[in-house]
Each structure stands twice: as C-alpha cells, then as structure tokens.
Design a binder for these strands. Structure first.
Lengths: 216, 216, 216, 216
DNA sequence: AATGAATGAGTGTTCATTCAT
DNA sequence: AATGAATGAACACTCATTCAT
C-alpha cells in the first residue's frame, strides 16, 4: 500500500526529469529557495542567502529566474505538477472510488511528509497574499480538487457514496481535513505517520462520527 | 438558528465593548489595517496607507501600536477572542454535543462571512511565516480545537459519537473542512451561505459519505 | 582661599537670582536639560525626557524656550555668566596678577567640579558642531580669555611675567591646560580635587618644567 | 625640522598605505565623511550627502561601513593611528627628552594644520557624546598621553625636567595647551603656523612665564 | 498657564536587481 | 555563462513642535 519507490528525505523540490537545465544550478537554486523560504518566510527570505546556499553568485539567480517571485512560483509549480502527475497515474491502478480516494489521501500526506521544508512553504506561503502567489497556485488547487471530485462522482455512480452530498463539498472537506493534518504537523513538529493518518481521516470521511445512521 | 444579533457588514475587526480606547482612533487604525492587509498582504501593506485610511497621521499609529507587527497581532487577537468568547457562551445554550458542534460550525462560518477582509487576513496572514505571527496565533487555534475536542468527548460520553475515533482527529478534520470552505470562498469570491454550508459540512462529519455503514 | 560658601552638590545650572520666572518651571527645565544632555548628548536628548524629568508637560517646554537648541544655549549662557561675573568680582580681592590667575584657575575648576553634569555638557556639547552652539558659546570663551589676558598683561606690567611671551598664547595655554584637566576628570571619573589641581597647573604655567633657567 | 614629506593640502583622512581596499571607494567615502561632518557635525551629516560627495550611491556606503557611526570611528581611528605611528618613529630620531617633546608638539600641530576638516572633526566630534564615540577614541588619547608621559619621565631621568611635577600633569597640560591652540585656529580661522606655535607653547611649558625662578 | 494628543517631515538602512567584466 | 560590486528606490519609525482644550 505504501509508496513502493524509495522516498528521499532531503528537503528538495522533487526534481524534474524533463529539463536538466544548465548543470543543475536551476535545481540547486530551487532547492535552496525552498529551504530558505521555509526558514524565514518568503518576504524575509533574502535572494543573496538563496544564492549562497545554492553555491552561486547573486546575479546567477537572475539567469535562471525572472525575479524572486518566480523562484517561489516555479518551486510550487514543480511540486504540484509532480504530485499531480503521480496522483493521476496511481489512481489508475485501482478501480474502486473508495480505494482511489484513500490512495490520493495517502499520496497527499506522504509527499509532504517526505519534504518538510516544502510542506512548510506550501502551508504558509501558498496561502499568503491573496493577490500574489495565490492567484496562480489556486489553479493547481482547482485541478487537484477537480480530480477528487471526479473520483467522488465515480463513487456515486458506483453506488458507494451518497448522492445527496455535493462532490464539491466532499472534495473540499477531504482536502481541508488533510491539509489541516499537515498544518498541524508543520506547526507542532509532532511525529507524523502519513499512512496511518490518511487512513484515519478517510475513515471519518467515509463513515462519519455518529454511532449509527439512526441517530442522525 | 441564525445569529440573533445584527451583524454589521462592515469589514471591521469586531469592536471590543470593554476598552473604548482613546476616542476611536485605536479602532479606526485596526479596521484600516485589516482592510489594507487584506488587500495587499501584510508585507506589502504600508503603514502610511493604513494611517491615511484611518484618517490619522503616520506617527499617530505609533501612539496606539508598538509597531506594524503589533497592529496585526492585535487585530487577530481581538477577532479570535471575540469569536471564542461568544462560542463558549453559545454552546451553553444547547445540551446535545451534536447541536453544540453544529452551533460552533455555524458561528465559525458566520463570523468570517460577516467580515470578509478579516476572513482574508485570517486565511492568509495567520498561516504565514511560522516564525512571526503564527507562533502566537497558533495558541488561539489550540484553544479553539480544545473546545471542539471537549464537545466531541462529551458526544462520545453521550453515546452519540463513535469511541474509536480520536477527538483530536475529529476536531482537526472539522476545523480543516470549515477552514477550507472559508478559503474557497475567500479565494473565489463565490456567494457564500454560512448556515447552509455549516450544515452540509457537519452532515458529512456526522454521517460520512458512504451509502451505508455496511459498506465500510 | 577655597570657596567660602557651601557648594551645592546638585547638578543644576546655577540658578539666576535675577528673574525668578514663573514658579521656577524655567529653572527646573534648565536643570533637567543639563542632566539629560549630560547623559545622552544633545542630539540624543529627548525633549520629552527633559520635560518629564522637569515635571512638566512636553508642550510647556515651549512656553519657556523657543526650541530645543535654545534650552542648551540658555543653560550654557547662564552658567558662563554666573562664572564670569563671579570671576570678575573675585579677582578684585587680590592685587597680584599671579594670585589673580591662581584664583581664576581655582574658580574654573571648582565651578565645574561642583556641577559634574554641567561640566560634561561644557566639555562635550559646547565644542560640538562648529556651526551650531559653538558660534555663540565661542563669545563667552573669548570674554573669558580676554579677562585672563588682561591679568597677564597686568603681570607683565608688574614685572612678574616675561614680556617675551604673548598674553594671548599664555591665556590659551592656561585655559587649555585647565580645560584638559576637567576633560580628563569628566571622561575618567577619577577623583578630582579642584584646588590642588589648580595649584599644580598654575605652578607649571608659572615656572615651567625645566630644572633650571640655564638649561633652556 | 619641518615635515620632510609633501603634505597634501586636501582635507582627506591621511590615506593608509597598507590596505588600498576595493578601488578607492573606501577612502573616498572616508574623505567625504570627514568633509561633511566637519561642515555639519556628525548628527547633521546626512549619509546621502556623504555618498553623493564620494560619488557613490547611498547603498554603497554600507558595503564599506557597517553604519554611519563606523564611518566616523574609522576616520578617527585611521587618523590617530597614522599620527601615533609617525610620532613614535620620529621621536626615535632624537635623544633629548626636550627635543622629543618639541617634536611631538610640532607633529601634533602640523598634522592637524594640514587637514583642517579632520582637525574640525577631531576638535568637535571626538569630544562629543561621552557615551558614543568618546569611549573608543578615549583610548587613542590615553595612548598618546602615555607616550608623552614616557618622554617626560625620560627627561626627569636625564635631569632635564623637575622631579616634583607629575608626568601625568605635565602631559595633560601640554596636550591641553596644544589642543586649545588647534581649537582656537579651528573656531576662528585665523592663520596658523604650526611650527612657530609649537615652539611657543613648548617654550612656555619648559620655562614658565615668570620672570625668574626666585619670584616663584 | 498648562496640557499632551496629534502631527508629518525627515533619514538611516536594506535588498532586489542590474551590468560591466 | 557567471560574477559580485554597485545601485537607488522604498519604508518603518522617531520626535521636535503645535494647538485645541
């Protein structure tokens, strides 16, 4: 059930296999940026610190990124795309909507658990400033939610899920619950078992907390 | 069921009745700050814009607040405390844990729905920068979650809620789901009926999405 | 020989007996100013601190003084005038130029020794900024030096002092030497016996340091 | 007897031959700072004016100096060290304590006479604010005075100087007298022949002003 | 006379970005 | 491509001074 491939524990933005640009400086800057932003927050992250931690000169950063904003944009973009591509692939491996949702939940938590700095950036900076990063990162979220909603509608078609609850609502609740579990981990630092927590959350989503349907 | 007292639609930090400090400049600055921060984000909010929007001179801001940080701190503090005090009061009015949870959910969404700028600030700036605001605002969140957990344990004692799910997990899921509904509203601007959405979310939390218990 | 009247150890600008303006707030502000300026330097002295230490409101300071500069000006003026008036009186009591010089030296050191804060202000702020205070306080210095020069010329007429040294030079050297003794005391805080030091300095001025005239 | 090397009349902090840091911006800023501080005083000197007079951008100042304070610190440090190193060297060239003192006096006045702005800064800002610059520049003064005291003690051993006067007292008087001559020049702008004045001052220090020893 | 809340001009410093090398 | 010295716009904050009370 757990991710079959070895997860690297480094806090790097998962590298793209597609464009191995210029000696990997591109990637080194991205990694350094996630690190520094996780530590200080975007506005308090200094480009010069990102550069020095990436082992390049300040000016070099601007050969690879238009400006500071775009570093963060690209870090988020890359991470999202990697996650999303993998998510779409993995859910093909199972047919039941229920198992697909469980798989998504586990992948969601595992991905962030494996990259704590990235998780920090996601939980803090992505929300930040409605008018800045959010606008564009919002699209990723919409894509993700749409994927979940499709699975939920599939479950409804399969007769597994109630028809009287909107797929949009369920998708938001599921995402919100998972997201909050990550936030809690990020802010408290308390040990975090992504698979177990994914199961627990999905158990709640599937069955609710009431002792019996009749009580409702 | 809906909030009995008139909700002012202005985007002010809910005023404190206790300390009507120095005329109302204090409150005017707080209101202006929430407005400006909601528009630009904390780091891009200019003190001079806050001042001018509050109708005071730049220097006057510093008669009421130690520095820019403390304006946001106090806005968040005040809002949280107001919400939390009211929440504790209101749940005393009903005895069933289920109704208490519904009440909390509704109050959560109503409060933020009534103050969109405040909601924006809460959804964006509060998460921001683990090292800055988050530290102190985190305590508010803990207080809120603890209140929810108490109600859940009450429900378990009342035999209403399953005993096999940790109250901590449920509290986080409930909070996360509600929080995500607010985020969604804040980022999309789509019309938002807090009472209806609170009901829908809690319906899911209570019963889950599966068609029958047996499927689980 | 030493000052017969009791010296108050308080660090006040010696009070003027002439114009007992408005309940003594004027004097209280002057005293507070000397205190605060001695502690922080003129530029780092805050008007509000002067006011509060004088026990008056900030605005009240401006009822008595045109602005911050003028507080210092007047403090220096008053101190200088008091010293100078007394100096002119006292030297009338002796006829020998030598004794008159000794008396001036002793009065110089005693006056500042009795008012350490005033001494600090004199040694630091008066020198400060050629274009600000110095211009006007320079006149006081000229008056003082002229008095000394008169005495020296008297001594030359009396046949006590060499004719081949300019009175101007001697006056500057004497003032410079005394001034440096005060500076040394002010900066090191080492115990300071004004009468003994005045004698020692004047002994040097009178006789030089060579073992015999022939060596010269 | 006069300074053998050409004295540049520019009001620059005497350049260090050791570390020609980064082009010459470092030195240009130092020179500009001495100029501007001499004109306006330290507190009224604007960093932006120093920068523009040095022909660099405001920010560039902070590449070479930690902050405004440190510009002045370094200017004073450099000037003092240059003077002091040269002083120690030059007095080795003569053996008599009397000639050594004369040499020190001449060097003292020549050095400042050659750099009027530096002299202004030394006479005004160095004294200033016991708590700021003074603390550290005081050490330079102590070093200088100790050098003088050693020479005086040498003179006493050589039988040239009276044993009944403390070397400390003489050193302070000599320094005070020279210092006052510089102050007088700086504040009045009257023409200034350093060698002649050094001689005159030392003549007084050596022989005193009395017509004969017997009068004492 | 006295107050002290309010003002707003003024500036040291930072840091994203550029560009000559 | 890479550098890193240089830039200069931008801004939080202070505090001398005013003035309505």
């Amino acid at each position: 059930m757990s991710s079959p491939e070895p997860i690297d524990k480094s806090d790097q933005v998962p590298s793209q296999l597609d464009q191995p640009r210029s000696g990997d400086k591109h990637q080194r800057i991205l990694d350094a940026a996630v690190q520094v932003i996780a530590e200080h927050g975007f506005f308090n992250a200094r480009v010069s610190e990102i550069a020095s931690r990436a082992g390049v000169a300040d000016g070099t950063v601007y050969l690879y990124f238009k400006n500071k904003d775009h570093i963060l944009r690209e870090a988020i973009d890359t991470a999202f795309r990697n996650f999303f591509d993998r998510a779409k692939q993995e859910i093909q491996t199972v047919s039941s909507a229920r198992m697909q949702l469980e798989l998504l939940a586990r992948l969601h938590l595992e991905t962030l658990a494996a990259h704590r700095n990235l998780a920090i950036v996601m939980q803090t900076e992505v929300r930040q400033s409605a008018r800045f990063i959010a606008e564009f990162s919002h699209q990723h979220l919409v894509d993700y939610l749409n994927l979940v909603r499709e699975v939920i509608r599939l479950g409804q078609e399969q007769g597994l899920f109630r028809e009287d609850i909107s797929d949009r609502l369920v998708a938001h609740c599921m995402f919100g619950a998972l997201d909050e579990m990550v936030s809690s981990w990020v802010f408290t630092g308390r040990p975090f078992d992504p698979d177990k927590i994914a199961s627990a959350v999905m158990n709640l989503i599937f069955s609710g907390i009431e002792t019996s349907r009749e009580n409702a």
